[in-house]
């Protein structure tokens, strides 16, 4: 019985990979697009766009700080669009 869990786990792993690999990129891009929209919501108020949920999204800003640079580059902005929020 000791060999079974290893064999079973290996089979699961192979099937997982067979299922996921061809579409990994497409799904990651779709997820990134959704995340980008979420970033826009979170930083909308700072860019002068009224955001009724600003009270709640404000506390998310530090959490999303690490992703800010990649995000504004993906939006076609070479430098940070926020005056008081310079990342590069």
């Amino acid at each position: 019985m000791t060999g079974n869990p290893g064999w079973f786990a290996r089979l699961q792993e192979l099937l997982d990979e067979f299922y996921a690999a061809p579409y990994r990129g497409a799904l990651a891009r779709a997820r990134r697009d959704e995340d980008d929209l979420f970033m826009l919501f979170v930083f909308a108020e700072l860019m002068g766009v009224p955001n009724p949920a600003a009270y709640y999204t404000l506390e998310l800003q530090p959490v999303l700080l690490e992703r800010f640079h990649d995000w504004h580059r993906r939006q076609g902005l070479d430098h940070s669009p926020l005056d008081g929020f310079r990342c590069c």
Binding site: L14, E17, F18, A21, P22, R24, G25, A28, R29
Partner: peptide, 16 residues
């Protein structure tokens, strides 16, 4: 980048 560029087992890749 673990999105498009991911080293993959050759048997799995052959299957794809």
């Amino acid at each position: 980048d673990d999105v498009d560029y991911v080293p993959t087992n050759r048997v799995v890749l052959w299957g794809h």
